[in-house]
Amino acid sequence: MRKWASIPHREGVHSRQAHADLPEEGLYEREMGKEGFFGPTAHLHHKHAPTAWTNWEGPLRPRLFDLNEVKGEGNSPWSAEMVLHNPHCRYRIWRPSSAMERLARNADGDDLLFVHDGEAEFYCDFGHLTLRDGDYVMIPRGTMWRIEPKGEMYLLLIEATNGSYQLPDKGMLGPQAIFDPAVLDIPKMDDAFRAQQTEDSWQVEVKRHNQVSVITYPFNPLDAVGWHGDLTVLRLNWRDIRPLMSHRYHLPPSAHTTFVAPRFVICTFVPRPIESDPGALKVPFYHNNDDYDEVLFYHAGDFFSRDNIERGMMTFHPAGFTHGPHPKAFKAGLEYKKKFTDEVAVMLDTRDALEVGDAAAVTENTAYVNSWKSPE
């Protein structure tokens, strides 16, 4: 597809380029856009921070949840507790502490596991993997699997309901950008996998339309002796992600896309140098999220654009309002106090509005909206 030159309209006081060299000291840039960060955009310059509200009424607001308080106990993934959901995505918290007694199979869509805490042995149709903190595990729809935790675990389960996960198109950057596909691990049919192929009775919990059926076998159905093809379970650890960077321009979240599904994307923010050019913005720019709901799960580190956020928490910014860095973070960015980010976070952007599950609702910090509040 060819890209013809298009000259944007300009009006009044404006910067020469987006996200750099603001035209006057004390102005604030706000980006409006379509299709997330992929469509047409406008960059407006304001005399006041676009988030400097003094009061907020009504249900549309920035929200903060402490998912450390969600129990999600049980040794079946179908006992995980619902945090957010819409017709195309189900976002759950699971805290298994013992080996699964039954195999799991999701007939509703692909699953993506993210290991926030803990270690486990993972067995599936395709073989065996050892999991650690920071691992993503992409499980194709219909795969039978189970885990044997080595202690307490804390996992995110993100289901692509009636959909599939794919890798992002890296375009002109080349296929090795962000992460080389060579770092993707697949299960091995090793000694550990063969050792669990017993003739003991096993059951499989199959989830379809969010109802669970149980199938009993007189043997362990993870009894494959080999396979070939290009469909399998994949593992990626955030430590193998090498983020895109520009010392002169703050890249949008879409530059950090890790997985894509038909109606949402998963991005991963990992440690990187902060922009060093004197005129470049050094924190996320103020922007409207008018087409997507935006969710951030905080896995590790110091979350440089937010105040009072701890690991295991989740922010939820529904579509429909402007948001951006907290005031202290914005000020620190102007002063270039930090030269490096050390945050790790999992971002979910959904095209369809998300509903908050009961498990998350009871953990909400309703004062979060006031963290941007302008002094009266």
Rank of each mutant, 00 (worst) to 15 (best):
P8G: 11
R10I: 08
S15R: 10
A18K: 10
E24I: 08
E25P: 11
G36Y: 06
H45G: 00
P50Q: 00
T54L: 05
W56F: 04
R61Y: 03
R61P: 00
F65Q: 04
G74R: 04
G74T: 05
W78I: 01
W78T: 02
P96D: 11
P96W: 02
S98T: 11
A99Q: 06
A99W: 01
L103M: 08
L112R: 09
L113V: 06
F114D: 01
V115D: 06
H116A: 06
E119I: 08
G127W: 03
L129T: 06
R132W: 07
R132K: 12
T143R: 04
R146A: 11
A160M: 01
A160G: 07
A160R: 03
G171N: 12
I178A: 05
A182K: 15
V183Y: 14
I186H: 13
M189C: 03
E199K: 13
D200S: 14
S201A: 14
V206C: 06
S213L: 10
Y217N: 11
A224Q: 12
G226P: 07
V233T: 14
A261Q: 00
V265Q: 14
T268K: 11
P271V: 12
P273Y: 05
E275F: 03
E275Q: 15
H299P: 02
A300W: 07
G301I: 02
F303A: 02
G312C: 08
G312K: 05
M314I: 10
K331F: 05
A332E: 13
K338F: 11
A345Y: 07
V346S: 00
R351F: 12
D358K: 15
A360F: 05
A360T: 02
V362P: 00
T363Q: 12
K373R: 14
S374Q: 15
